[in-house]
Nucleic acid binder design. Structure first.
Lengths: 327, 327
DNA sequence: TTGAAAGCGCTAACAT
DNA sequence: ATGTTAGCGCTTTCAA
């Protein structure tokens, strides 16, 4: 049986209150010698406080629950880094719940688990979420923020995200400025993020007076494998440039292009949205648009704890999106 | 104020016991209509059970705590995947604690946090750990397993790991069979893992009757950046082949080799230990030794819950370590 | 099938 | 500086 505060109290010949004080380092409420002695005994017994009981009694948690609904991409890893750092700075613990891979049912369960933990607040990192799930969150009495997903028609759901419409516009404009007119969009998904990027792409093309051939747009799941698969879709359509929905899609496209003797960027320019740690590793030809994911993490913590409004993390795409020697 | 079970009970005109039964789906102890009615009311109120109180009262958790002490490499991600899958299959929740990056102090705190959570057991994924930390774990009254780190001199500390000595031997043998005699070992660290790999390398070289020049061995931290830095260390030593301590190290070496007009594998053969998702992406020249990290995750859960002995995850290095067109 | 009540391990007044 | 005690919100006998 695990030792409880009572066992420690008895072993030390003091009351449970004294043990509690000693372990909580309430130095002004306890004699240093007593405190030290109690702590030593507790350690010897291998005692660790029962956080459930502690929380129940004190009603304070200082814990941020993070839900990761992760996909093939690893963009959440850097976000999590940012969250961990800032949360630690602000004296909060972070507890992470994983909701499997794109499984709505499990995401639902996981949201409930997180809610049950009575955390200070919940951060949900997800590429996709449905109505019911957001409802569960908003009906509960726990502050939450959606990271990297938003719907401007529902301003009541606070979010922290990159401005995907802007990203779509800027990535497309970048290629337009290089003189391209037949530009494809490959590998976006049907979620909020994908749709906003699509919207940005359409806006930029239309602004430039260009007509988009529906065959220039191909959906996917942001993964490397999918990038490879999608390469054949853009063949034989006269495209000279492609906006890839993610850096992994771009990597897959480039890989397949090489296999098919299509020279990048001479015959086909590819610009990838979303940078990650593999930026430079993937291939020398590709440098990706790097959203400041880390900052997204820190901002999320601040936004949640300070109860601020929704926030777009500015991304300086064009400056960073240097596809080297592109045409 | 968040609704409690009392509020729900009052709203439904029943006792708290009935609410508890309804929410726990104890179908044989409650009339279906009552149960349904109570659950509906609870949902309308946005009620979520307080998991702290629940655990305190029932004294069951069915939760596995995972501590990630992550480093520059991302090998833990696949392990975590395996853990999540198996834990879910076995009806356990997983709660993840992050211990920052190679910070002994924080790792210590995090171990304590995990211990306080009264989980069924603790899985610690780490490349390095010191004596004090393992002590904390073993003195507490919670089962634990060390993942990917072990010390054969301390059989009391259960682990799940690849057999790094064997990996070192096989990777070196692979190059020996190709006819290399001047083989370096680059990027291993001073931890258990690194030392076992070094031991394997030494054993293989000695077995082959070769003398190791101390200048052939270079320590590092398994990261891509470090791989690039270490390239200069192996220059001008007459090496024809290198065992890289990790796939990221190998990627860094290859990148720098290219910058220095050293042809891989014609002038220098590089074999990387540890595969990860970036296997194929990094460069066509490199395919890495892929330890079955996912299996390591699932095995860890089983091993912990079934209270089995320590376990080496078999790795079929040679079959997988095809460095294409190498020499 | 439901309710009353004890108690899980801890914290925080309040008392001494 | 330390002890006593009343809960925190829930589950679980035991009774009805």
């Amino acid at each position: 049986m695990k030792p409880t505060i009572k066992n420690v109290a008895k072993a030390a010949g003091v009351s449970t209150a004294t043990v509690s004080r000693a372990l909580a380092n309430k130095d002004n409420l306890i004699r240093p010698e007593t405190s030290a002695r109690v702590r030593k005994i507790a350690q010897q017994m291998g005692y660790h406080k029962n956080v459930a009981a502690s929380r129940l009694a004190s009603n304070i948690t200082k814990t941020i629950a993070v839900i990761i609904n992760y996909t093939q991409t690893d963009f959440w890893q850097t976000i999590l880094d940012g969250i961990l750092k800032r949360a630690h700075e602000r004296g909060h613990k972070v507890i992470i719940f994983s909701a499997g891979e794109h499984d709505p049912q499990r995401l639902n369960e996981t949201i409930n688990e997180a809610l049950e933990h009575q955390a200070t607040g919940i951060l949900l990192i997800s590429g996709r979420i449905d109505h019911q799930q957001v409802n569960t969150l908003s009906n509960a009495h726990t502050p939450y923020r959606l990271i990297s997903i938003y719907n401007l028609r529902h301003p009541e759901h606070r979010f922290i995200s990159s401005d995907d419409v802007k990203i779509g516009i800027e990535a497309t404009n970048y290629l337009l400025q290089k003189g391209h007119t037949k530009i494809g969009l490959v590998g976006i998904d049907h979620s909020s993020t994908g749709q906003q990027r699509l919207f940005g792409y359409q806006k930029a093309m239309t602004n430039a007076g260009l007509i988009i051939d529906p065959g220039w747009i191909h959906y996917g799941n942001y993964s490397y494998e999918n990038g490879k698969e999608l390469f054949q879709e853009i063949q034989g359509r006269g495209l000279t440039a492609v906006v890839a929905g993610s850096d992994m899609i771009a990597a897959g496209l480039i890989k397949e292009a090489a296999r098919n003797d299509v020279k990048v960027p001479d015959q086909l320019s590819i610009i990838g949205i979303d940078g990650s740690i593999i930026d430079e590793i993937i291939t020398p030809e590709l440098t990706t648009v790097n959203q400041d994911f880390f900052k997204m993490g820190t901002a999320s913590v601040d936004n949640l704890l300070d109860d601020d409004q929704s926030l777009f993390i500015p991304t300086k795409i064009v400056e960073r999106a240097s596809v080297k020697d592109l045409n």
